[in-house]
């Protein structure tokens, strides 16, 4: 970033990196759309209890089972007479929370390991690299499923499994940034001046790695949402009565009514898609803003 900011000083008055990023982001159509979608989703999640204060899990009406969309139930009702709309908007709370936590876990662990590997090199780098290669030898979905098969199905376990599969991405990303950044003059200088390792790591190297990490983290929220829903669909994730979108689809499929009451499957799926889309777009926009050289 530093070098880019310097080149622009030649032409116009100095601009801080942050303002430059904001300006670039606002030029990105996908970024703007993604931001709006994500904000709407977050708002929906926050306001879900206000919209429909009743409990989406236990509020049921047996007589109103599997009713198609109507003025009263705009998304129809499920096999227990629960309002699909209510369940879907409450589902956004689960999905966003799971997405954020899963990404936070993989980001923290992965970035730390990547920093360590890139900075200290030596056997640490070899071991961490080995670990990364092994993890990446399994397709992500399969690895997550295998982990849940070992630890047992639950939303928490699914979340942890999904975050584990994402760790190698952050290791590789951070390590490569650190490897190039540690050759930079000012970091060489800091090291030569005898700055403590952790100071160099977290004060100097980490900030360099941040932009691509932020971009990756945003994209990861989408991936995590998708994978968690997939585990939920297979019955290996969220358990009842949680209104998790994947579990709702699973109910509809395994209860046999997905195909004769299609609203029970259309809306949860749409929301999964919109959530993933929102964070993918937002990630694209952030990449344009923060990391314009990255290959698209």
């Amino acid at each position: 970033m530093a070098s880019l900011a310097q080149t622009s000083t030649l032409k116009r008055p100095p601009e801080t990196p942050t303002r430059l990023a904001v300006r670039r982001f606002m030029k990105s159509t996908s970024g703007k759309i993604g931001l709006v979608l994500a904000l709407v989703l977050i708002l929906v999640a926050l306001l879900a209890p206000v919209f429909k204060p009743y409990d989406p899990a236990t509020d049921r009406n047996y007589i109103e089972r599997l009713k198609p969309p109507s003025a009263q139930h705009i998304f129809g009702t499920d096999n227990l007479g629960r309002d699909v709309f209510t369940r879907v908007i409450h589902g956004s709370r689960i999905s966003l929370r799971v997405g954020l936590i899963a990404v936070a876990i993989s980001l923290t662990v992965g970035t730390f390991l990547g920093l360590v590997a890139g900075y200290f090199r030596g056997w640490l780098e070899i071991v961490i690299g080995w670990f990364t290669d092994i993890m990446l030898a399994f397709p992500g979905t399969l690895l997550a499923i295998a982990i849940v098969a070992v630890v047992g199905p639950s939303l928490t376990n699914a979340m942890i499994a999904v975050s584990i599969t994402q760790i190698p991405v952050y290791i590789r990303l951070t390590r490569s940034v650190v490897l190039s950044a540690r050759e930079l003059d000012y970091i060489q200088a800091a090291t030569a001046l005898g700055a403590a390792n952790n100071r160099v790591l977290f004060r100097h190297l980490l900030p360099n790695a941040l932009p691509p990490i932020i971009v990756q983290a945003t994209l990861s929220i989408g991936t995590a949402t998708l994978e968690t829903a997939a585990l939920g669909f297979l019955g290996l994730g969220a358990q009842p009565p949680a209104p998790e979108w994947g579990a709702m689809l699973s109910d509809a499929f395994r209860g046999g009514y997905a195909l004769n009451s299609p609203w029970t499957m259309i809306f949860p799926g749409l929301f999964i898609m919109f959530t993933v889309l929102a964070f993918n777009l937002l990630g694209d926009g952030l990449r344009d803003a923060l990391d314009p050289r990255a290959l698209r």
Binding site: F253, R254, G255, L259
Partner: peptide
């Protein structure tokens, strides 16, 4: 899965089946 089995029954690619959820 019941949904898949019902789809097959409707499509005529199976003749009869059991274990259909009451819904």
């Amino acid at each position: 899965d019941p949904a898949a089995r019902l789809a097959e029954l409707k499509a005529g690619s199976i003749d009869f089946t059991t274990d259909i959820p009451p819904a």
